[in-house]
Nucleic acid binder design. Structure first.
Lengths: 338, 338
DNA sequence: CCTGGCACTCTGCGCGTGCGAGTGCCAGAC
DNA sequence: GTCTGGCACTCGCACGCGCAGAGTGCCAGG
């Protein structure tokens, strides 16, 4: 177990390194933080911390920098979440309030997060599977061609073309529309399959094929995971990354374009609060020198999607976590209102 | 006027510089291209070209590199568009064919362009103003609340909430829906305003307010220019940009995030064929060291949107132009089919 | 008008050096 | 036992130097 002072030393190292981007030595530490001990003592503590794997030196006779393990300890034990100041909160609210539709909410959220944290922001669109149906609309585009439009409680709209096995009358269509909506409107997506199971039986034999086709298209739409879209922004902040550009930045940009990777990344975080994944804790190796701070957000009490930021492991964790949490909270409010 | 040989020298300089990324000298030129003259002669030609502003030297006693003006001449007079090879064409077609909806078409196009050109790809969603209406749907979500759904011939769907000044019966709604569609379905967006002008008069006094509200929301949706969305991809290719990273890449990333800037950029290109804007020809100064190659594409013969790539001024213009043109052609085909 | 030759000018690179920051260890003080 | 001051040591980095190589401009002659 590390003594209290050694933890303080670690905290000081993390803070200084995050601030200066340079390896921090024992002398500088004692000067900037009132630890009440001499550099020599700090050196001993540093040796111990290095032994345990919390810090490392880039090369002999240079200062120390935190390892992933060191950041992990810092985040878990040594630092809390820094709350946003009232003016900041007001700014967030103002910025989000002008949004006109879902796309706009997401776009504004991305910009806001990127500005606030000066890092790359990632916002997942409210997920279909966890939200509820507001309305299902069916439009006859041709005798045997129907457009299915699904509207969710978060304002998202999905549409699909359905080619019917047989022509389908306007009356039958209206009937199906009415029955469908009376059953699923206001219900959660996960409940829909069982709710519509026996619907084809209510129709005449001629129409059953078409009804089944429409229903299965609807169910497909509900589960289709590639529809878990997301928006990213603030990539210009990557240029503040470090000194050795091309090598660091390239894999990150590549990873950011692989939406699948990002979705998996956000999906892995099960914690109800703010989740931090540091360096090699990220499965994707392009993100091995980055940390991901994420949190769920939702229109009600429940999380329907995630948002977060991607930045260098050397980041201001308390501030970033505070910003991410605050933005998630206000986005939730906005979604609940609309 | 420049002699034929001097133009050949310029062409050779551009080709070599694009290939090697290094200033090209007179000796190397005569070795790699059979110009039939000695280095000394080439030097004289170079001096003349420099005098005219087509090439420049980064510092005394280094080779020459083309200026923006030099690239311009190269693109206009010295090089054509390099057509794609048959295998490449087939690959493009295969890649685009699997798309399931409009989002997917656009996403695939972006990936494809980025891979093909190894640069940053930008694809504008088919623009509303130039396409036609397939269907307008009205849904009563509450007595005085209507959802307006607009479906375009390119498969795009826009929805808007409308708060009515007075409750609106289901019968009136159906009436409006029918009248509206019979007038605008299949018509161009630009024609819609005059087509619906007198619609309110067909309704009873009680409903006229609501009808007008719905119509004006529809018209707003049609012209709303911020709905000109676009998708970008291949930003990782920026890392191949040059040696002096942070300074070059940062403004480009920033410009790419300003969708307004990009839309303006694409919009400016009026040429019916492939348009190339080189370096300082781009209004936005973040893009002063990049070239933009763009072209319109559309489902019919007519262009409904633009797509293109952003890359360093030192790029393979013939190849890039060929790729951009080919992709636009096939995307047009795909859109026409669906 | 082209060519070969020549003198000149830079940049980039490899090398050695000195400086400074930082470390590890040890003996002594509290 | 724990902390402290002192000391020798180790590197990395910035600096200055010189050299080679590539490229140029110019000139006189074919």
């Amino acid at each position: 177990m590390l003594s209290e002072r050694r933890l303080q030393v670690l905290r000081a190292i993390v803070q200084d390194y995050v601030g200066t981007e340079e390896p921090v030595g024992s002398k500088a530490l004692t000067e900037r933080h009132s630890l009440g001990v001499s550099p020599a003592t700090v050196r001993n503590d540093m040796a111990a911390l290095e032994e345990e794997g919390y810090i490392a030196q880039p090369h002999t006779s240079a200062g120390r920098i935190p390892t992933d393990k060191g950041y992990r300890l810092f985040v878990d034990k040594l630092a809390g979440v820094k709350p946003m100041s009232p003016p900041e909160r007001r700014a967030i609210q103002n910025f989000l309030e002008g949004a006109v539709d879902l796309d706009d909410v997401v776009a504004r959220t991305v910009r806001l997060l990127a500005q606030l944290t000066r890092q790359v922001a990632v916002v997942q669109y409210p997920s279909l599977t966890r939200s509820t149906v507001r309305h299902v609309e069916l439009l006859a585009l041709a005798p045997a061609r129907v457009m299915l439009v699904l509207i969710t409680d978060t304002g998202r709209v999905e549409q699909r073309m359905v080619d019917c096995p047989a022509p389908f009358g306007e009356a039958s269509l209206a009937d199906l529309r009415a029955r469908l909506n009376s059953r699923v409107a206001g219900r959660r997506f996960t409940d829909v399959p069982t709710l519509v199971e026996d619907l084809p039986e209510a129709f005449e034999a001629d129409d059953r094929g078409t009804v089944s086709t429409v229903l299965s298209t609807l169910l497909e739409t509900l589960v289709e995971e590639n529809e878990e879209r997301l928006m990213i922004g603030g990539t210009a902040n990557l240029t503040r990354f470090g000194h050795d550009f091309p090598l660091t930045i390239r894999p990150v940009l590549e990873a950011l374009e692989e939406q699948v990777v990002l979705l998996k990344l956000l999906g892995e975080a099960k914690d109800p609060g703010v989740t931090v994944r540091i360096g090699h804790e990220n499965a994707h190796e392009g993100l091995n020198s980055t940390s991901v701070v994420s949190v769920g957000y939702g229109s009600g009490g429940e999380a329907v999607a995630k948002l977060g930021v991607v930045g260098p492991t050397r980041m201001d964790y308390p501030g970033t976590m505070g910003a991410v949490r605050a933005v998630a909270r206000y986005v939730g409010q906005i979604l609940a209102e609309s």
